[in-house]
Amino acid sequence: MPVEWMKRCEEKSVLLLEGNDDCNIIKNFCKYNGIEINFGFCNCRNDSQVLSKINALLRENNQPKIIGVILDADNDIDERYQDIKEKVKNFYKLPKNMPKDGLVHLEKGLPKLGIWIMPNNQDNGALEEFYLELATDIDTAFINNTIQEAEKKELTSFKSQHRKKAIMHTYFAWQDTPGMPLHAAINKIVLDNNAEIAHVFKGWLISLFN
């Protein structure tokens, strides 16, 4: 179950996310980069519920002023963008292709709409790719080798699209207090504020909510 701060779905400025990890990582990113959290986190629990929530909010009598959406590209970034376009087609005319710096869209009489497709609006993948790009202390290649060893011994069962997620959680499993909840574990990780992706994402968040 989402905790209270992830349930602020009624805010006038609202950010829709796919799950717990997403909320924690974005909140952590904001803290680390000194971005004011002037929006409500709304944990929709999965990707299809994010899409449902966009539609439901747009039809509300009392629409939000700003709706931000962060979704994983998963296996097909283009298809993901088309899903979103299809869901809002009665309201917005969105650009044909997803802008690489994230979308901030204004249309008269409608909430300002922001879309970011993880990891970087261009590649397939998910939030974990985005996070591992910033968390430079996490030796992704080394952990991946170790996971591959485990795979050879048939000790794994994760789906292929969740490889980065497995890498991230494997790393945390080895730190002080294994099994620590993600929100606590990520507090101890240094993020690279100068990474290109950090600048672009920060720019998107600020231009959307400020």
């Binding site: 519920q49 449902s52 929530k53 539609n55 439901a56 039809r59 509300e60 009598n61």
Partner: peptide, 29 residues
């Protein structure tokens, strides 16, 4: 839903899938 805003009435239509989106995400209809 019948809405009244800026001295004007408008209607917001809901298909079944729209209602489902709202109910499944606990959003006010």
């Amino acid at each position: 839903r019948i809405d009244y805003k800026d001295q004007q009435h408008s209607v917001m239509p809901y298909d079944f899938s729209d209602l489902n989106d709202a109910l499944s995400t606990n959003t006010e209809v």
